[in-house]
Nucleic acid binder design. Structure first.
Lengths: 157, 157
DNA sequence: GCAATAATAGACATCAATATCCAATTATAG
DNA sequence: CTATAATTGGATATTGATGTCTATTATTGC
């Protein structure tokens, strides 16, 4: 129901939120989220063009969130890469309908409206704070520390 | 959020439900629903293979619903052509997660669950009976009679 | 049996999503 | 100023969704 691109974008944003406000390199995000790096860079470009993330070139650079995790919701991320297209007028182009949707398209649009609303009400902070036995993107709590600390590759400066 | 194929399948089924229990030819459905006829025939094949519709070749044949409109729900139609894929295990393949989804994927799956439920609770009869100013697939009430009666092409037999 | 009707099957075409690769550009550290 | 780190942009490949075309098969009426 959601595109691969949406899945990738959300994974990347979760990782960024987890490290917020520090930047992460595309390579690091790709590894942590298991997304093809070259494709991820395209997805991140979309997120940058939509002002969801900020990018900084050169040593010590990378991608970082523009908002804080508690100000950023899932809908902003989804709409940046693969917007939820609400049905605004009759898809058959029937003049008699116009903005007045028939029962079928009202049902379809309603499903999208509900999804849109659920996403808009969920912040990244909530995702990170959810108490569950699984931590986002990480296998074990130890993994999380490993990724966060990056012990095998200490941060420059 | 939903594929073109789902849209086409639902349009066709609404038209069939409207004429139920009489059969409709692919050509007639294509015209009434504004779906490319050759592609529609593929979509209808999927619906037949999933036992949503019955097909009959030859003169007087066509496509007809297997269930009555009040026994058929939207989910059966959607799943026949483009199944809603619920997230059953961690998309990253993290062993520590397994069937225990992380907060991100639980949110995504929850959105799909809600959509799935809404569709499973809506029958075709309800779609046809919904009181709204727009009738499904038709421009005006007159159009509906035109399509139903097919005055320009009286039914064989 | 023959002709007309209508679905079926398969091959083929087109387009957008997904994915990869590489050169160019920008920024930083020293 | 130079080497390095990192994003950016463009070209290209691959795949699946969408769409078209033609021949075949099944059914009915004559």
């Amino acid at each position: 129901m959601f595109s691969q691109t949406v899945e990738y974008a959300l994974r990347a944003i979760v990782h960024l939120a987890d490290n917020s406000p520090n930047p992460c390199t595309t390579e690091q995000i790709a590894k942590a989220t298991k997304v093809p790096q070259a494709y991820l860079s395209k997805v991140l470009q979309s997120l940058r063009q939509s002002n969801v993330v900020h990018s900084q070139r050169g040593i010590g650079g990378g991608i970082s969130l523009i908002k804080t995790p508690d100000e950023l919701n899932l809908l902003e991320v989804v709409n940046a890469v693969d917007p939820i297209q609400r049905i605004k007028s009759c898809p058959l182009g029937l003049k008699g309908h116009g903005a007045n949707l028939c029962p079928l398209h009202r049902k379809l649009d309603e499903a999208m409206r509900v999804t849109e609303h659920a996403f808009s009400e969920t912040t990244l902070a909530e995702i990170l704070a959810s108490s569950t036995s699984s931590y986002p993107l990480c296998n074990e709590p130890e993994d999380r520390l490993t990724i966060l600390g990056e012990p095998s590759k200490p941060p420059v400066k």
